[in-house]
Amino acid sequence: MDDLLRRALMLPPRASSAAAGLDHLHYVVLGCALAVALVLFGLLGWFVVRFRDRPGHARVRPGARSRRFEVGLAAVTLAVFVTLWIGGFAQLRAMRTPGPNALEVYVVAKQWMWSFVYPDGTAAEDELRVPVGQPVELLLTSRDVIHSFYVPAFRLKQDAVPGRMTSLAFTATEAGTYDILCAEYCGAGHSRMRGRVIALPAADYARWLVAHDAPDLARAGARLAHERGCLRCHDVRAVAPPLLGIYGRPVPLADGSTAIADAAYLTESLMDPAAKVHAGYAATMPSYLGQLSAADTAALVEYIREARP
């Protein structure tokens, strides 16, 4: 019955702990709507047929209207709506509360892709792997405009807002591959900003983690900065701005304006160094567009963020 309804309503398969409860509330609300519609339109149809204007239709004085009846009807309606609201709100609370020992994954959205970074530094693009049965908490932000992380099979959605960190908690219940869609309009590539969640059985997930054996993200960034020779210039004050402690601070720019040295600015400076040049330094840095993978970029940004005086 449940499955039949789900298919009839075109709801996608369920793959998270929140999905079943949501679907059931959905049925309840739909049931209420249909019941009210049946009663109201039944009455309306009956009135229209019974009291239609026709030869020999004798009018009867409508009964006196009772204030009690009106107030009572409104109160019952309010009670029904409030009950629905309580159910929905309780459900939302449960959905928003991450389970114990939640696996935290950073999600960075940008036009038009999703990047995922795991606490151990593993990074992936457009593909999120999670273990079935373990609570997961996604920490989302965006590098440009607002996006929205949406997995229909999980019945879950959360906006990724630039300059803010938002979170989304879920527990995958069924192994499988599910679509990630962007639900907040973000430009011409909006409808193609899709990714996949791959929910793996716990054992498979553990095996995948080991296979990656990724180094700590900031440490990877430090090594990368060393290999690429970033520090040859960025350590000597006269040549390039020092990276130590720059993260999150305002940077005076050559054109007189200011930028905050956040992930967006640092990424832009890596890819298009001439765009926002630090005041007092020559625009000599080469562009690393196409030379650094997203994971490398994230590692470098993470390194700069960690590099505090």
Binding site: A18, L22, L25, H26, V29, W85, G88, K157
Partner: peptide, 8 residues
């Protein structure tokens, strides 16, 4: 407006 359904 039941808020949880809005998430989907």
């Amino acid at each position: 407006a039941t808020s949880s359904l809005d998430v989907h």
